[in-house]
């Protein structure tokens, strides 16, 4: 090995070392940003608007397969996350049929509770509505509190996402949706 080669090798070692330090610094910085992201209060409790809605394939309670990708393509889709025994969710039940009757949207009702008796929910449903019992779908949509509604547009992007306090807040979300002509 002559001197020039040795010098070149040393330069190469220094360069790789420098790249390594830079990489370590960036990694440290992104870990710091992730910690900021998870500070209570500014944690991203739900998916951000404009991002792609997570896809899922599950069986509805009536046995039909619900393929999110196909549904999202056809028309705007409302995902309403509820729980069997949540009092506010129960107050929504008498109004669910109105949504499928009045708006030209896919309506998916997602109950994250898979154990308790849900007869009262099933009584409030009609054939136009997809009813799913799955904690998995709530998990992938980062739903921490119910009721929560998410509106997905035909491009599969999240257009609106909001926790709901009463049925009016749900109808407010649908204010720009196309009505069905009866």
């Amino acid at each position: 090995m002559n001197w020039i080669n040795i010098i070149l090798m040393v330069i190469l070692i220094l360069l790789v070392g420098e790249l390594g330090i830079f990489y370590y610094f960036l990694k440290y910085n992104s870990n710091f940003l992730k910690q900021i992201q998870s500070i209570r209060g500014i944690q991203f409790s739900t998916l951000e608007l404009g991002r792609n809605a997570p896809l899922f394939r599950v069986f509805a309670e009536n046995g039909n397969k619900v393929v999110a990708k196909e549904l999202f393509k056809k028309k705007n889709t409302l995902l309403l996350f509820i729980s069997t025994n949540c009092p506010v969710c129960k107050s929504f039940l008498p109004h669910l049929k109105k949504i499928t009757e009045n708006y030209d949207i896919n309506f998916i009702l997602i109950n994250h509770d898979t154990l308790n008796d849900d007869t009262h929910i099933k009584k409030a449903l009609n054939n136009e509505l997809y009813y799913i019992r799955s904690s998995h779908v709530s998990q992938i949509y980062l739903i921490h509190a119910v009721p929560h509604a998410i509106l997905v547009n035909t491009k599969g992007k999240i257009e609106l996402s909001s926790p709901l306090s009463n049925i009016n807040s749900l109808f407010n979300m649908l204010i720009n949706q196309e009505h069905l002509i009866s």
Partner: peptide
Amino acid sequence: GVLILYGIIREIRQNVVLTRKI
């Protein structure tokens, strides 16, 4: 060096996305 460079580009992208989100 090439491997670390790939890591650096990926980390820069991730940092930019995270900063924008925050």
